[in-house]
Design a protein around this nucleic acid. Structure first.
Lengths: 118, 118
DNA sequence: ATTAAAACTTGCAAAAAGCAAGTGAAAACA
DNA sequence: TGTTTTCACTTGCTTTTTGCAAGTTTTAAT
């Protein structure tokens, strides 16, 4: 007898906002996306960001992002075994969300500033 | 001797995206904002949304949103003691974020649909 | 061949989420 | 006016997730 674990995460509702949050509604996921949009591709690069994501969380988030097809895992260089992560079209499409979040932060949260290249 | 609890939540970094996520980077907060943008103002209204936020979570989120000045708590009707919540200018300014999230969900997550008025 | 770095995994403690039930004040109703 | 119902929470408890440190294994560099 086998314990069934669902292949896809259940949605809380059909609302596109709720559904989006089911995928990336947490403290860390969109920061990984931010780094990817800035051109970072490696596990160590994400770890190097100033927010300090823990390794187990990063690992879990990358798996989850790949499962939702926002990123793909591929060899870092040709024939290499080391992992690199890249945004898919679906993942790239998050750019407007990140931009509006950045703009909101800059406008309404004093002391915020864009440090990272992009 | 008094235990010191910080008046403001510590920021993980000065990045405006990270700072934004420190405020509303979770599964529930932006759904409350969504409801507020749709004109809902009462505790029971937020509870009635299809995602089913638990009462203790809603309570904590409303407190937190007020602390960050995204909403204000005011009497529901003049001289009433019952609470109503309304977006401040800072909270209203989240509209573009919610719009882009909605658009992304509709474009990339099959089966999502806008049910709620707005 | 040795060493070092990269990309994880594991174990455990702490924090947060989720659930059901309870409470007290306020409004509605008889 | 007294009773009932609704509202806006709070509390207690269990489960899940997070955070941290340490360990492991594969890959690359020297």
């Amino acid at each position: 007898m086998e314990t069934d674990s669902p292949l896809v995460d259940p949605r809380r509702s059909p609302c596109p906002v709720a559904c989006s949050l089911d995928i990336f509604g947490d403290k860390w996921t969109l920061l990984v996306i931010r780094d990817l949009l800035l051109g970072r591709t490696r596990f160590k690069d994400f770890l190097a960001s100033p927010e300090g994501i823990p390794t187990n969380i990063l690992s879990e988030r990358l798996t989850r992002l790949a499962r939702h097809q926002l990123i793909v895992r591929a060899p870092a260089v040709r024939d290499s075994k080391r992992a690199a992560y890249r945004l898919t079209e679906k993942g790239l499409a998050l750019l407007p969300i990140l931009q509006t979040m950045r703009d909101w932060g800059l406008r309404w949260e004093p002391g915020t500033e864009v440090r990272l290249q992009g």
